[in-house]
């Protein structure tokens, strides 16, 4: 298995293209670029890349339209790379099926981490049965949580929330996604109950809830759990 991971970059800005290509080329990825949405869609179909980096401002199609079309036939992981920092746009892209989101300008490590996480979650591979990071360990089979080796007690909802985030460690989950997964399809739009539960979990696992090490907030978007070191 020495085939390089193949990434399709759909982006029309030349300087962004050359920066991302150089950055990821050095990391060992093989990159193909498309300068328009249509070209991107056709290359996605013909090349079947392992991952797509998608800019939202394209000369022909809106990036969200590209994403919508892509998602009608493909599960290829998509990471959005956009200059827009509006939370509604992030939420829209994520709820349309994007795997993650990076705002330009970004730090090299940020993009690499998002790509790594999206690839890891894509390969039909069942999430590791153990989540482990720093001093936190969650056994997803036995449904137990340990902090510094001490078992901690979570309510049922708290455990469901924490394990959902742990299974998706490293990637952002929107409020909507979490509400639907935990409270079911008819969950209320209001995310207050979710957020209060998160605040309670933080009080149980974080040393300082205002400087979290495990559960990161993306205000207006959702939550992201620290990457799993065990897998």
């Amino acid at each position: 298995m020495n085939a390089k991971v193949h990434i399709l970059l759909i982006e029309d800005e030349k300087s962004s293209c050359s920066y991302i290509t150089a950055l990821l080329g050095k990391t060992g990825y093989h990159i193909t670029t498309a300068a328009t949405g249509r070209e991107g869609l056709s290359l996605a179909a013909s090349l079947c890349p392992d991952l797509i980096l998608l800019d939202l401002m394209l000369p022909d199609l809106n990036g969200l339209a590209v994403l919508r079309q892509l998602r009608s036939w493909s599960h290829i992981p998509v990471v959005i790379v956009s200059v827009c920092d509006e939370e509604q746009e992030k939420v829209e892209a994520l709820d349309l099926g994007a795997d993650d989101y990076v705002t330009k300008p970004f730090y090299p490590n940020e993009l690499k981490a998002r790509i790594r996480t999206a690839l890891r979650h894509s390969h039909h591979h069942t999430p590791g049965q153990i989540y482990e990071a720093l001093n936190l360990r969650i056994d997803l089979d036995k449904r137990t949580t340990y902090l510094n080796g001490q078992q901690i007690h979570l309510t049922q909802i708290e455990y469901q929330l924490l394990s959902l985030l742990a299974e998706n460690a490293g990637r952002v989950l929107t409020y909507n996604t979490i509400l639907r997964r935990i409270w079911g399809p008819y969950a209320e739009e209001n995310n207050q109950i979710l957020r209060v539960n998160m605040a309670n979990i933080r009080r149980k696992i974080e040393k300082n809830p205002a400087c979290p090490q495990y559960l990161f907030t993306e205000v207006g978007v959702g939550y992201r759990m620290r990457e799993n070191e065990n897998g």
Binding site: V196, A199, A210, C211, F216, T217
Partner: peptide
């Protein structure tokens, strides 16, 4: 919107530490 203050602080501190890895911030809530 009604926000949980620690979430807003947490995200702010996280952003600052990404930008300035050596910059230390103590938060008390």
């Amino acid at each position: 919107r009604v926000e949980i203050v620690e979430e807003v602080l947490g995200e702010t501190v996280h952003k600052m530490e990404t930008r300035h890895p050596d910059f230390k911030i103590h938060v008390a809530i």
